[in-house]
Design a protein around this nucleic acid. Structure first.
Length: 957
RNA sequence: GCCUUGGUGGCGGAAUUGGUAGACGCGCUGGAUUCAAAAUCCAGUUCUUUCGAGAGUGUGGGUUCGAUUCCCACCCAAGGUACCA
């Protein structure tokens, strides 16, 4: 073989790797000998959609693969697995449309084939294989596989069987809590629980019925049933996510959506708020990502204050970060959903309040929050009593107060908070000023630092800090409040009214949830005839005929057998998307274990993920929930670590370059982009595959694709060429700018694709894909190939002759730079470095093995196929994958002289080669003696000459 | 609004702690090779220029012998988001 036949080479080595299990990671149980140190490189696993991969998807996988391969060269036993997050909404939507079982379409999306509607699907696995990843496929997991989701169900049960002890600051078995209740009641225990939990004594507890006890325990369990507000769409009979709602109506169909309470499973993640915050200090994640988790958890310090309500028994609790401004309160605002609203509203205000509540229910939470300008609210007719002054304070409701944050009520201090200020102005409520020497006629004064309190009784003349402390002390003394830390973080709703998700291992006995024991798991998804909600609005599992739990036989039986004695109905909701992805990193450590999530021995060896690569869009979803579950399982002794991921890198998105043809407004004419300015035009997306690298449109093909333009006039420029304009957008099918990795592999090969993706720019940054530029890296690989094929007729030829000094220098500076780059995840600069090295070695006519052999190891993480082929030709029967990484030797880079830049007033004018061991004074003398120096000084005498040996000379004057 | 990231040639981007701005690649220009094309190779390519030089890393200031890099203020773009009491 004399020229670079990438297609043959790549197919050959991919087959070879698969056959020899080259990338199978060894577990301690696989070998008696001691294993090398472990290194765990993980990618966020993909959701296998029917659209297949585009060139943006593999970016992170290529980066992590380079790193994984590098670590193997460095002697590590590398775990680099891949799997599929295969439960999810698109498969379910597709099932609704086509009637195919989501399990089938998911399988086709992964493994390839033809689906029932005749669509030919390549399959994720084959697409991934073509790129030459070093994944250990023997460890593949699929979240929709029952053997996998058995463990997701198991984790759910563990959460149900646990409570959070705030004294020990960890989760404990629920049995511990039961024994505490029977010996001391619940007054001494400090546990995270529902806000409305009443206190009881040991005696009261023991006298409660079993059902009553279970109800109380549900208020403590880390997963619990609660009434939660959801976006309910009556027409669709289903719950919608925030982003499925546009302008208050459903995206699909445009039906009205209302806020409705629904009994749902929730996760008590709030118990872990502080630890999730603290844990961020211990992990090496990008600061922006840590910031968004910090903001999401939203810790704020302040006080909880209780206001009594005039003429009612009720009290209103508020949380405030400014207890120092308590004397500035001039009204209270409750969220319209606040539970007291119905109770305290006066008869006169009843109608206005009801109308307002109804109007609010129609607006989504996101809408309410996005709309900052509209001020709305209604007076309830009720008054609260100020805890210190005893003044009556009108109670309003307003939708700027959110039911889900804090207590759903605020003490409004208009002089100190802009929203309260705007509200007060709008409704002509008084705005007492409690800040000394501050003008509040135009706006509220929110500056804490420069605050001196006045008109505030015992808080007068105090600073923010002093007043806050004193106010809290006074509140505590009066029993009207206490210092408090509040978190924005809410408990996570865990129920989904969908089919294609993990079933809950739960059945209901007298309306109370019961868990199915581990030995009977997995509880597999039942068959249904349609994937839609039932006519009475129950989730799709409500359509299953065989969906009841027989507690005697311990199996799923027909619904007709339900007798509420031994056979009970099963839960109809399924788990959300993040359930299966929260702990999958541990399953890869020991994926076929049927007794545990993973064996202790395997977990001890692999520890946690050393490097995780994925998008930043998961910052507050997946990455927060995963940390929560891991901390929980750690508390309960099921995991050995309390953080799943040591280091994380976010890869940026690869954007597409959309192509636009310009249509002349109102006419059946299309005009070439260069002439578009002469017309009033409207851009229309053209498929990028119809456009060449010079932006010229294949007009005939375009006409065939968009037949409505078949007889349109095409106004061309130059010699009959019709050009499109380009714009960078997200890569997406709907924008016709998708480039598939398969077409790149066909034309240029996987090694070119891998290198080009790395070459595009810094990993973390978003960058546009431009296929035109790929020829650069492709011809680099051809040059690399040539370096080893300079014999007669371009035959393979590498000699044992010692390399020249220059070639060794090239090699070693490349080793140094590439090693630094990989360690810093600066893959784009490595590719440049390789290009420089190959250009130099080519110019040096280097063909000695001493240099060309280590060079292959350097390149192999990036372009593994060509490296394997040449490695093999060099006479190595074994794979290059575990060859030792070349060791950098400084001695080849030692220089005796330096090309000094000589600058005048900081501007470089010329260079001068001088020995590196020359003294400062001699350098100055040499520079001053140079003829060009006089020229640039133009007769001036220098004020100062700065000489930095080995760096620069700067002449000032 | 807030948070985050970024702004350098025609384009993607490079510049280790403040020390030769524009590496490397694309594109473009010219040339070689070819019947021709592709491919390959060679040279050039920040802008302005009176060919001496001058300007130049979003804008305006500052620190410094020297700033893409550090500080202050501002502008623009992208992503995220929560009216958070």
């Amino acid at each position: 073989m004399s020229s670079y036949h990438f297609n043959d080479i790549e197919a050959k080595w991919q087959a070879n790797w698969a056959k020899n299990n080259t990338f199978k990671a060894k577990n301690p149980s696989d070998s008696n000998a001691e294993l090398p140190p472990s290194y765990y490189v993980l990618d966020m696993f993909p959701y296998p959609s029917g659209a297949g991969l585009h060139v943006g998807h593999p970016l992170g996988y290529i980066a992590s693969d380079v790193y994984a391969r590098y670590k193997r060269h460095k002697g590590f036993n590398v775990l680099h697995p891949m799997g599929y997050d295969s439960f999810g909404l698109p498969a379910e939507q597709y099932a609704i449309q086509t009637g195919q079982h989501p399990a089938e379409t998911t399988k086709v999306n992964i493994e390839g084939g033809v689906d029932k509607s005749g669509k030919q699907i390549e399959g994720y696995r084959r697409q991934l294989d073509r790129i030459g990843f070093s994944f250990d496929w023997s460890r593949e997991v699929r979240t929709s596989n029952p053997e996998y989701y058995k463990w997701t169900q198991w984790i759910f049960i563990q959460l149900f069987e646990s409570w959070y002890d705030e004294k020990q600051d960890k989760a404990r078995p629920i049995s511990d809590l039961i024994s505490i209740f029977s010996s001391e009641g619940n007054t001494t225990v400090q546990a995270t629980c529902d806000a409305n939990t009443e206190s009881f004594t040991a005696e009261e507890w023991t006298n409660l019925s079993e059902a009553a006890q279970q109800k109380i325990l549900l208020k403590y369990r880390l997963t619990y049933l609660a009434e939660t507000e959801v976006n309910w769409c009556p027409q669709l009979g289903t719950v919608l996510a925030n982003d499925e709602i546009v302008n208050g109506v459903s995206e699909r169909g445009g039906y009205p959506v209302v806020r409705k309470k629904m009994k749902q499973w929730s996760m008590r993640i709030t118990a872990y708020a502080q630890r999730l915050l603290d844990g961020l200090q211990t992990i090496d994640w990008p600061q922006p990502l840590k910031d968004s988790q910090t903001n999401w958890i939203g810790r704020s310090e302040g006080a909880s204050v209780t206001f009594s309500v005039k003429d009612h028994d009720a009290t209103i609790d508020v949380f405030t970060t400014r207890p120092d401004t308590i004397f500035g309160v001039s009204f209270m605002t409750l969220a319209p959903e606040h539970e007291l609203v119905g109770e305290i509203t006066s008869e006169a205000q009843q109608q206005a309040v009801n109308e307002y509540i109804e109007a609010t229910a129609k607006r989504s939470e996101r809408e309410r929050m996005a709309d900052v300008k509209t001020i709305s609210g209604v007076f309830t007719g009720a008054y609260a009593i100020h805890p210190f002054s005893g003044k009556e304070i009108p109670i309003w409701i307003g939708d700027y107060v959110l039911a889900g944050y804090g207590t759903g009520a605020v003490m409004s201090v208009p002089c100190g908070d802009q929203r309260d200020y705007d509200f007060a102005k709008h409704f002509a409520i008084e705005i007492p000023n409690i800040f000394k020497g501050v003008d509040i006629s135009e706006a509220a004064f929110a500056d804490k630092e420069n605050t001196i309190i006045t008109n505030s009784d015992f808080l007068n003349d105090l600073s923010y800090k002093e007043a806050t402390k004193k106010a809290i002390e006074a509140l505590e003394a009066k029993g009207h409040g206490t210092g408090k830390i509040n978190y924005r973080l809410r408990d996570a709703v865990f129920s989904r009214q969908r089919y294609w998700g993990e079933p809950f291992p739960v059945y209901y006995k007298n309306g109370l949830p019961q868990m199915i024991a581990l030995e009977h798991l997995p509880l597999t998804l039942p068959e249904v005839e349609k994937y839609l909600p039932t006519e009475d609005g129950e989730p799709p599992l409500g359509r299953a005929d065989v969906w009841a739990w027989d507690t005697k036989a311990n199996k799923v039986v027909a619904n007709t057998l339900v007798d509420d004695e031994t056979v009970f109905p099963l839960e109809l909701n399924t788990m959300p998307g993040w359930a299966g992805s929260s702990c999958y990193m541990f399953r890869y450590m020991d994926p076929n274990n049927s007794d545990a999530l993973a064996a202790t021995e395997a977990m001890r060896y692999w520890d946690s993920v050393d490097l995780y690569v994925g998008g930043s869009e998961h910052a507050t979803g997946h990455l927060l929930y995963s940390r929560f579950w891991v901390k929980f399982l750690y508390d309960r002794g099921h995991l050995l670590v309390d953080e799943p991921i040591k280091k994380l890198i976010n890869q940026g998105m690869i954007l597409g370059e959309s192509a636009f043809v310009h249509r002349v407004e109102g006419e059946h004419k299309l005009v070439s982009a260069g002439l578009a300015n002469n017309y009033n035009t409207q851009p229309i997306h053209a498929d990028v595959s119809l456009v060449n690298t010079s932006n010229e449109l294949d007009v005939a093909a375009f006409k065939q694709w968009r037949t409505e333009f078949e007889d349109a006039e095409f106004i061309t420029e130059g010699e009959g060429t019709f050009k499109v304009s380009r714009e960078v957008e997200k890569m997406s099918k709907s924008k016709y700018n998708v480039v598939s990795p398969d077409e790149i592999c066909d034309r240029y090969g996987a090694d070119t694709l891998r290198m080009y993706e790395m070459f595009l720019g810094p990993l973390e940054q978003a960058k546009p894909w431009n296929t035109a530029g790929i020829t650069g890296v492709h011809s680099f690989l051809k040059k690399l190939w040539k370096l080893y094929h300079n014999g007669a007729n371009n035959s393979f030829q590498v000699t044992d002759k010692p390399a020249s000094k220059d070639s060794l220098k090239t090699l070693h500076k490349t080793i140094k730079k590439v090693e630094e780059d990989i360690e810093n995840f600066s893959f784009n600069t490595s590719v440049s470095t390789f290009m420089i090295a190959v250009n130099e070695l080519g110019a040096q006519k280097c063909n000695s093995k001493e240099v060309l052999q280590p060079l292959l190891v350097l390149i192999s993480p990036y372009a593994p196929h060509i490296a394997e082929e040449l490695w093999n030709k060099l006479g190595h029967p074994e794979s290059i994958a575990t060859a030792q990484f070349p060791v950098f030797d400084e001695k080849h880079l030692v220089e005796s002289s330096k090309e000094y830049p000589i600058s005048f007033n900081g501007k470089m004018r010329f260079t001068l080669e001088l020995p590196l061991d020359m003294s400062k004074d001699d350098i100055e003398a040499a520079v001053m003696a140079h003829e060009k120096t006089a020229h640039y000084l133009e007769g001036r005498s220098p004020k100062k000459v700065i000489v930095v040996p080995g760096k620069i000379v700067n002449i000032v004057g």
